[in-house]
Amino acid sequence: MKPVYEIAVVHGDGIGPEVCAAAVQVVKAALGPGSPLHFSEYPAGAEHFLKTGQSFPEPTFQACREADAILHGAGGLPGVIHPDGTEAGLDFTLRLRFELDLYANIRPVRLFEGVPSPLSGVKAGDIDYIILRENSEGLYAARGSGALLRGEVAVDTLVQTRSGIERIARKAFELARQSGGAPRDGVRRVTCCDKANVLRSYAFFRSVFDEVAKDYPDIATEHALVDAMAMYLVVKPGHFNVIVSENMFGDILSDLAAATVGGMGMAPSAEIGAANGFFQAAHGSAPDIAGKGIANPYGTILSAASMLDWLGHKHGDERLNQAAARIRRVTEDCLANGLLSTDLKGRASTSEITRSVCDRLTAGRD
């Protein structure tokens, strides 16, 4: 009997239900009848918090932990916060990262044909790299454990461990080995992004990275300070292949990078650990456009393709890898043919994009 993969679907807030539903439809179209995926929906997020006082119910967490993969729409709403001022909608994402040890946040940055970039003279193929964000340590590991003293002093601790740095560095080199290299020169390269000139924690990150690099003599290495990197991603994006960084730096840089390839609607992400995988677009819930039918689903669709790839490689199931490749090809064709959402200066609605992608996938199976 063919295996069945259980996918925990959490739609979330704002445009989350719209883009998540689009991704599910696309995956079903890619796999067709007899799909080995079973989708089950669970509640979490800011809207659920407003209704029940719980942002991440325990049954949802248990279902996510036991699922073969997790697909998420988006989380968070303005003003929906806990007494300490932190966002209730972020509980879902952050708890999964830390409790399921989803240490590798993989954020591909690629400029597709047909998608306008704000960078002058940059065309499709000129930007194609990965930002690999360490997802379980860094400054964000202090969430919920920092101190606020007498309303005068606030302290959060940045945490870096040797084992955490080693495994994310190794993941960066493995991703580089699997890649075609940087667009500008074809060199397989890993760039370590830090602030080693100021803080010991980042100097430690760099020193451990350099130790790991010795095991990968076939991959070029370099260092970049995070402030300089913010400039480099704008002035020479074609130079980069894989960039690895601490949690917060990776978070910030990946949003800047997304802006160079069409915006947050074109920003897929995969968050993976030894046992679990969590997939969502890197954008927020965009409540200002929720329900208008104009949300860009491409980021979540591409995240779902990453989910299929991860499952396929993990379980040796080529059906899933082939479906992921078809989704990417069809997405590329749709964008190149001008099927653009409003954030990409187009006019296509969420449903029009979803229907076109699904129709092309179905036709490709016949």
Score class of each variant (00 low, 15 high):
3 P>N: 14
5 Y>S: 03
13 D>R: 04
29 A>Q: 07
35 S>D: 05
35 S>K: 08
36 P>V: 06
41 E>A: 14
47 E>A: 14
54 Q>H: 15
54 Q>A: 13
57 P>F: 09
59 P>V: 13
61 F>P: 03
73 G>I: 04
75 G>W: 00
80 V>N: 03
86 T>P: 04
99 E>K: 10
100 L>G: 02
108 P>L: 06
109 V>D: 00
112 F>S: 05
115 V>P: 03
119 L>M: 12
122 V>A: 12
126 D>L: 12
130 I>E: 05
132 L>D: 09
132 L>S: 05
134 E>T: 12
143 R>L: 14
147 A>L: 15
148 L>G: 14
148 L>F: 06
149 L>V: 15
158 L>C: 13
158 L>W: 00
168 I>D: 01
169 A>I: 03
173 F>E: 02
175 L>K: 04
176 A>N: 05
193 C>T: 12
198 V>S: 09
205 F>R: 03
208 V>C: 04
209 F>D: 01
213 A>I: 12
227 D>A: 07
227 D>K: 10
230 A>V: 11
231 M>K: 07
233 L>V: 12
236 K>D: 10
240 F>P: 00
260 T>F: 10
263 G>H: 02
268 P>V: 02
298 Y>F: 15
301 I>L: 08
302 L>S: 01
309 D>T: 14
321 N>I: 10
325 A>R: 09
325 A>Y: 07
333 D>L: 11
333 D>I: 09
337 N>G: 06
337 N>E: 15
345 K>N: 13
347 R>G: 10
348 A>V: 00
354 T>H: 07
355 R>K: 15
355 R>S: 13
358 C>H: 05
